[in-house]
Design a protein around this nucleic acid. Structure first.
Length: 143
DNA sequence: TAGGCCATCTGGTCCT
DNA sequence: AGGACCAGATGGCCTA
């Protein structure tokens, strides 16, 4: 559990509009707000759990630095596209050997994938495209 | 100390 | 009516 807003508590908002209501309505509104806050916390925790799972299957910079949410999504996108490219090329080369496929998948292993992370491109589209091109040019294998 | 990242609260909107 | 989802606001923590 990290920081929380100092000025806001689980008691919910205390606007003048609420103050003008009857105590029963105020209590109901407060209870609903607290429940909504709890649901939102739980929802965001679920989302963060999903991000953690995604971080585990996506190539990392290193063991020390945790990818941010944005970086995780970017890496997942380029990783998926790299794998997709391999499958597409596999079909194009007519049922490649197991050895060829192993060689291709080695290229997208975490330890060799960090070189694909680029942040100096203006758009994500360009970033992904250039990353995949870079990866492939460097490891092209002809069946 | 500024900037990045994040957790939390909150009100609005949509759906069941 | 109530829950899910979303985006904006806010403040804490961390690092260069």
């Amino acid at each position: 559990m990290k920081s929380r807003r100092a000025s806001c508590t689980d008691s919910g908002s205390e606007s003048s509009e609420l103050d003008s209501r009857s105590p029963e309505k105020y209590e109901t509104a407060t209870r609903r707000r607290m429940a909504a806050n709890a649901r939102e916390r739980k929802r965001m925790q679920g989302l963060n759990t999903a991000f953690d799972l995604l971080r585990k299957v996506v190539p990392q910079w290193g063991q020390d630095k945790k990818l941010s949410k944005y970086e995780t999504l970017q890496m997942a996108l380029s990783y998926i596209m790299a794998l997709n490219r391999i499958l597409t090329d596999a079909r194009r080369h007519n049922a490649p050997s197991r050895q060829w496929l192993d060689l291709q998948f080695d290229v997208v292993q975490p330890e060799s994938y960090s070189c694909l992370m680029r942040y100096d491109h203006p758009t994500e589209q360009e970033y992904v495209h250039s990353s995949l091109s870079y990866q492939y040019d460097g490891h092209q294998v002809h069946a």
